[in-house]
Structure formats: structure tokens, C-alpha cells
Amino acid sequence: NQAFTITAKDFAGGHSGETINDGKSNAIKALSLALRRVAQAGVSYVLASITGGAAANAIPSEASAVIVVDDVNAGETVKKAVGEEQAEIAEVYGEVEKNAHFLVESADVPAQTFSADDTKNLVSLLNILHCGVFAMNQLLPKLPDLSANIGTIRTEGDHVAIQYFPRASADARLRELMAILPVYAELTGCDIELASPEPAWTENPHSKLVPLVADVYKEEAGKEARIEAMHGGLETGYFFSMNPKLDIISVGPTTHDIHSADESVELDTVALLTRIVAKTLGKLNN
């Protein structure tokens, strides 16, 4: 026997809501496609471990798997198959994933592995779990209406744990997707635990708070406010679910590359936001 570590590295990553429609790949998904290609190349292998991602709500930028093969001469076939998947990703994702690549390295043969059936089922599950946008909003063309992301995968003893994170702009959309997820589990012999969904928070076209805050923003910042609906879960959704008559908006400082290694915040905008909130509260009180 011999073992290899296959690693998907330097994928763009980022926030699984804010940047889900930017045409990115997903390192865990890409790794699963590479593993499937290795099997299609005729290499018989079993998984020893697989890991990737940093958080459920982030698009993973790296993932790796250790496989064990019976054929001691299979190394070149494995490398060729993984190389073909890298070429495919470059063709599909083009300029979006400029740095994404795979590494195939020799590894120590582990004492324990998963069975051939479990290996096949896990790779199949990862292949069929959709990552990215399912549907765009019909009223707000730039806003995804339903999306999902494989955020993390971890080998924990004798099982593998996967965090799959769907997002939707309406509760009914989310319920529809959650209803079919157990089918994926049944078909691949996996167990599934459905967490309590965060309530959706829909845009209010008649909001009185939006124009008020926009005016305050212009007074403080000296320019027009950018008002957008976003594809992300917020605490405000819980307030809305308890009282849909509430007029709610969400404001925040200027951030970049959220949930990636390059995440940053413009500190000056934090001070600006503080002034805007204080001035808005003063006007609401009058």
C-alpha cells in the first residue's frame, strides 16, 4: 500500500452570503471532484481522512484528503487525474480563481481507513451537494434568492462531519431545500441533523427608516448612501419574525474580503457609523 495527500489550495474563499454569486469555486467541492476523477481513472483507493474549511458560513479556501491505494505504481495516475481536475477548474472559473491549485504528496500509510463503500458514498455526497446560487431574486436582480455552501468538513475518529449551509431570502424557499436534504443522506448512507433555520428578513419597500438614515448619511459623509439588499443572515431576522410590522434596517462599517484570510475593516468608517447612528436616534426622538 501507499498513501497520498491531495490538497486543494489557495482558492479565493470569502463570505458564503455576500460573495456566493461572484463565480467562485469551493475548495472542499473541488477536492471531491478531484477524488472522483481519481476513481474514474481506475485507481482503487480508500479515504483515511478529509478536512477543509474554517467556518460554516465561509467559502473554504483549502481542503485536503489522505487516500490509501493498493497499487504501488498508481502515483503517476493519481497525479495525472488531479492535474486534469485542476485544468478543468481553471477553465470553468477562469479569472475568479487565479491562484487555485492542487498538490499531490506522498504520505505515511495510516493505521486505519474508511471502507471502500464509505469512501464512495462520501465522495458521491460531496459531489452532489450543490455549492453556489440555486436561484436569483426576481425583484432584485443582483440578489441571490437561494444558495448553499459546504463550509467545513472534518474527520472525527470513525466518522466525517460536514457543515452544509443554505441561505434563502424567504422561509418557504429554505424549507423546500431542507425537505430534500434528507434524501441525499438516505442515498449515500449518511446521517443528517437539520439545525434550526435563521428566519428570513424581507425588504420593506415602504420603509420610513431607510430614507431617514440615508439623509443622515449624506449629511455626515457628504455623499449618497448605497442602499442594497444582501444575501446574509442577520440578527434582525429574529426581530422581524417576532413582529413583521417593525421597520428595520441594517448598517455597518466598510469591510473587505469578509471570512477570508484578507478580511479587513476601514476604521474611519466605524467612527462615521457611530455618528450616523447617534444622529438618527436624535431625529427619531424629535
Rank of each mutant, 00 (worst) to 15 (best):
N1M: 12
A3L: 07
F4Y: 14
F4G: 02
T5E: 08
T5Q: 09
A8V: 01
A12D: 04
G14D: 08
S16F: 09
G17P: 04
E18V: 10
E18W: 12
E18G: 05
N21L: 06
D22K: 10
K24Q: 14
K24M: 14
K29M: 02
A30C: 03
S32M: 02
L33P: 00
L35F: 11
R37P: 06
V38R: 00
Q40I: 10
Q40M: 13
G42C: 10
V43A: 07
S44F: 15
A48E: 01
I50W: 01
I50D: 00
A54H: 15
V66Q: 08
I67G: 03
I67D: 05
V68E: 01
V69G: 09
D71H: 07
V72M: 12
V72W: 12
T77I: 08
T77P: 12
Q86A: 08
Q86S: 09
A87G: 03
A87T: 01
E91Y: 03
Y93A: 00
E95R: 04
E97R: 00
N99I: 11
F102S: 06
V104D: 07
V104Q: 09
E105T: 14
A107C: 14
A107R: 13
V109C: 06
V109I: 06
L122S: 14
V123A: 09
H130C: 04
V133S: 04
A135Q: 07
N137E: 07
N137L: 09
L139R: 04
L140K: 00
P141N: 13
L143Y: 15
L143K: 15
D145I: 14
L146C: 04
L146S: 03
A148E: 00
A148S: 03
I150G: 03
G151H: 05
T152Y: 01
T152V: 04
T155R: 08
G157A: 01
D158Y: 06
V160A: 13
I162E: 01
F165H: 15
A168T: 03
A168R: 00
A172G: 07
A172W: 04
A172Q: 10
R173L: 06
L174T: 13
L174N: 13
E176N: 11
E176W: 10
E176R: 10
A179F: 08
Y184T: 05
D191F: 05
L194Y: 08
S196Q: 11
P197K: 01
P197V: 06
P205S: 12
H206E: 13
K208H: 06
L209T: 15
L209W: 15
V210G: 04
L212M: 06
V216N: 07
Y217F: 13
K218R: 15
E220T: 12
A221V: 14
G222L: 08
E224V: 06
A225P: 12
R226P: 13
E228V: 12
H231Q: 04
L234E: 01
G237R: 02
S241L: 12
S241P: 15
L246P: 06
T254E: 03
H256N: 15
E263F: 12
E263I: 11
S264Y: 08
S264H: 08
V265Q: 02
L267H: 10
L267M: 10
L272W: 12
L272P: 12
L273V: 10
I276D: 04
A278V: 15
T280R: 00
